[in-house]
Simulated assay, not measured.
Amino acid sequence: MRYDDHPPTIKANIPTGSAGENAAGELVVRPGSVVHLDCIFYRKLGNPRWTWKKINNLTRSHPFGWALAREERLWRFRVSIFSIQARDEGEFTCTTPRGQTNSIRIVVQTIQCPLPPVIESPLIAVIEGNHAGQKAVYSCLDGFRLIGSNFSECLTSGAWSENKQPFCELIQCPYDMDGADPRLEFDFLNGVGYQAMVKFSCPPGYQLIGPTNATCQSSMNWFPSPPSCQVVECAELLPPLNGRIKESGSNHFVGDVVKFSCNRNFQLLGQSEISCMENGTWSFSAPQCQMFCSNPTSPASGYKIVPQKANYEVGANIQVLCDSGLKLQGRKWLTCQQDGSWSASIGICMNNF
């Protein structure tokens, strides 16, 4: 059987305007639309022929011929109806060189959809009209979110593409946050509505790990996710060289106090007690234990030491002075050495004769 022994296929293309098929199978076109009717037929087998029967006595001629585009001109024999009007209604028939036919019936009609319901705040609608192809676009005032479709179109069937009008829901974020640290504290600065802010904090002895605040989003969720509270712990301390820490464990939390002491013949340089603070640092640096020299003594009398102290730091110098009329036998200056001894023995003050 030859290709052209079958009725041709007709395809409608509406580059401008709108159209649709009704229950009777007719092509219902909005006035002013541009309609291209293509008779699908292989050009090398000859030229088909377009004819049309008018519904009324008004007539208008329409251009026809093979399509111009390269990918269409071998298969599409086209009749074009520009700015279609009611007088263009009728039955359009394509007939092949071997007499096979196919037809399409065109009805020109202004299709109207029912007017949308009255729009009330906080719903906002931008409505082009209620003719086929015209649209309604919906949105909400700030602080509300749209429930339903934000778009509806008047179809050629005379119905809107969305049969339910959307509505606006008040945006409110929850007062509790799923999965949040139970120790986390919340301060809702301006309620829980859209763009409201919550500030996070932790109880004493804990530090905040993560964001310090969050904002209520249109999704009715807080963003970013809540932080956590981590117990504050100060770094472990080692006993000073030639000293020790009194009653100290390996973990130190806020408020813990650590006491230091030194071995015999050593003195403490720094604070004897330091405490763990809320920021996780110690109130003072750990002290050191340093060797000291004791005040030199002698059974002889008639001298004095400057300066006069009970103990002296390593490197300290003292001066030995004799009373009037006495002369020092020994070194005038002594230095406290690293091992806690003086650089020389203290001298003797003797009569000067």
Score class of each variant (00 low, 15 high):
residue 1 M to I: 07
residue 1 M to F: 09
residue 3 Y to L: 13
residue 4 D to S: 13
residue 6 H to Y: 11
residue 7 P to K: 04
residue 10 I to P: 00
residue 11 K to P: 12
residue 11 K to V: 14
residue 12 A to F: 11
residue 13 N to L: 12
residue 16 T to D: 06
residue 16 T to Q: 12
residue 19 A to I: 01
residue 23 A to R: 08
residue 27 L to I: 10
residue 30 R to D: 01
residue 31 P to Y: 03
residue 36 H to V: 07
residue 40 I to F: 01
residue 41 F to L: 07
residue 42 Y to L: 12
residue 42 Y to M: 13
residue 43 R to K: 14
residue 44 K to I: 02
residue 44 K to N: 09
residue 44 K to T: 14
residue 47 N to F: 14
residue 51 T to M: 14
residue 53 K to G: 07
residue 53 K to H: 02
residue 55 I to V: 04
residue 58 L to C: 12
residue 59 T to M: 02
residue 62 H to E: 06
residue 63 P to G: 13
residue 64 F to H: 10
residue 66 W to G: 02
residue 67 A to P: 04
residue 71 E to S: 12
residue 73 R to P: 01
residue 81 I to Y: 04
residue 83 S to I: 00
residue 84 I to A: 10
residue 85 Q to S: 15
residue 86 A to M: 07
residue 89 E to Q: 07
residue 91 E to M: 06
residue 94 C to P: 06
residue 95 T to E: 11
residue 96 T to V: 09
residue 97 P to I: 02
residue 103 S to I: 05
residue 107 V to S: 08
residue 110 T to F: 01
residue 113 C to L: 14
residue 116 P to A: 12
residue 116 P to N: 06
residue 118 V to Y: 08
residue 120 E to H: 15
residue 120 E to D: 15
residue 123 L to P: 09
residue 129 G to F: 06
residue 130 N to H: 15
residue 135 K to Y: 01
residue 137 V to Q: 15
residue 137 V to I: 11
residue 138 Y to G: 00
residue 140 C to P: 03
residue 140 C to Y: 05
residue 153 E to H: 04
residue 154 C to A: 10
residue 161 S to F: 10
residue 162 E to A: 11
residue 165 Q to E: 03
residue 170 L to M: 01
residue 170 L to I: 10
residue 170 L to N: 05
residue 172 Q to A: 08
residue 172 Q to C: 05
residue 173 C to D: 05
residue 176 D to K: 07
residue 177 M to H: 04
residue 179 G to K: 07
residue 180 A to R: 13
residue 182 P to A: 10
residue 184 L to C: 05
residue 188 F to G: 02
residue 189 L to K: 10
residue 192 V to N: 14
residue 197 M to I: 11
residue 203 P to F: 00
residue 208 L to W: 03
residue 214 A to C: 11
residue 219 S to G: 08
residue 222 W to V: 12
residue 223 F to Y: 15
residue 225 S to E: 11
residue 228 S to G: 11
residue 230 Q to I: 09
residue 230 Q to D: 13
residue 231 V to G: 13
residue 232 V to S: 14
residue 234 C to Y: 03
residue 236 E to M: 13
residue 238 L to G: 12
residue 239 P to Y: 08
residue 241 L to T: 12
residue 244 R to V: 06
residue 249 G to P: 10
residue 253 F to S: 11
residue 255 G to F: 03
residue 259 K to E: 15
residue 260 F to S: 07
residue 261 S to C: 13
residue 263 N to V: 08
residue 264 R to H: 09
residue 269 L to A: 15
residue 271 Q to Y: 06
residue 275 S to Y: 14
residue 279 N to K: 13
residue 284 F to V: 01
residue 286 A to Q: 08
residue 288 Q to W: 07
residue 293 C to W: 02
residue 293 C to E: 06
residue 300 A to Y: 12
residue 302 G to F: 05
residue 303 Y to S: 13
residue 306 V to Q: 10
residue 308 Q to S: 14
residue 311 N to F: 14
residue 312 Y to S: 01
residue 313 E to L: 12
residue 317 N to K: 15
residue 320 V to E: 07
residue 322 C to T: 10
residue 322 C to G: 08
residue 323 D to R: 09
residue 324 S to D: 02
residue 324 S to Y: 06
residue 327 K to D: 05
residue 330 G to T: 08
residue 330 G to W: 05
residue 332 K to E: 10
residue 334 L to Y: 01
residue 337 Q to N: 07
residue 337 Q to E: 11
residue 339 D to R: 12
residue 341 S to L: 07
residue 344 A to V: 04
residue 347 G to P: 00
residue 348 I to N: 04
residue 348 I to E: 02
residue 348 I to F: 01
residue 351 N to V: 06
residue 352 N to H: 04
residue 352 N to C: 03
residue 353 F to K: 14
residue 353 F to H: 02
